[in-house]
């Protein structure tokens, strides 16, 4: 397959419109990867993800584990000599990937989903719920449960979740935000 056949201009345009970052500015110096605290665990470093994005291989970029492992610490964006907001590109790619069902890091996605579900229904985080749900979802039933008892002993966990007064308002925010994202995608 030739390079031209692999390049997807529409996705490249969508990435630009949604991230507002011009990836062509990246000159591939590698300072982002060099400073990224997660890079050694990534399949592709941030520089390579940026290269895929600027070459129009956005589909491929969306399938990397890297965009999920990014901790959004923004070290890359802060230090970039060309002022490219790398973390913003990673975040936008992550959103675009999820919309298309490209989930290269299932556990991280599940964690995000559970988190969002709890916030959506309670308006706030409920940590015991997060841990238990995560463990059920990922199959690691006892991960971090050893911390539960000390937490309780130290009165650091509320077993009773926050009772939301704002639940309808929060649900509406979730719905409207999703609609806004959908509209942006529809515009493409």
């Amino acid at each position: 397959m030739t390079l031209q056949e692999m390049q997807n201009q529409e996705l490249r345009d969508e990435l630009f419109l949604r991230s507002q970052v011009d990836v062509t500015k990246c000159y591939q110096c590698g300072k982002c990867t060099a400073g990224c605290p997660v890079a050694e665990h990534m399949d592709y470093g941030p520089r390579q993800v940026m290269r895929m994005a600027q070459m129009g291989l956005v589909e491929e970029a969306m399938k990397t584990k890297a965009i999920w492992l990014c901790a959004t610490c923004e070290t890359c964006s802060t230090r970039c000599p060309k002022g490219v907001e790398v973390a913003k590109v990673m975040e936008t790619l992550r959103i675009m990937a999820k919309e298309r069902g490209y989930i290269a890091e299932k556990n991280i996605d599940k964690f995000n989903n559970i988190y969002n579900t709890i916030v959506k229904s309670l308006g706030r985080m409920y940590e015991p719920g997060l841990i238990v749900s995560r463990n059920v979802a990922t199959g690691h039933l006892f991960q971090d449960t050893s911390y539960g008892i000390p937490y309780l002993a130290k009165q650091k966990l509320n077993l009773v979740p926050h009772k939301p007064k704002n639940s309808e308002e929060i649900k509406s925010i979730f719905a409207k935000a999703a609609a806004m994202d959908e509209a942006e995608r529809g515009n493409r």
């Binding site: 030739t2 390079l3 031209q4 520089r47 290269r51 895929m52 070459m55």
Partner: peptide, 17 residues
């Protein structure tokens, strides 16, 4: 013409028509 090169930044061969 087919031009065969490597995108060494991505680490993979590319062909351009």
């Amino acid at each position: 013409l087919i031009v065969k090169g490597e995108d060494s930044l991505l680490g993979r061969p590319v062909e351009i028509l």
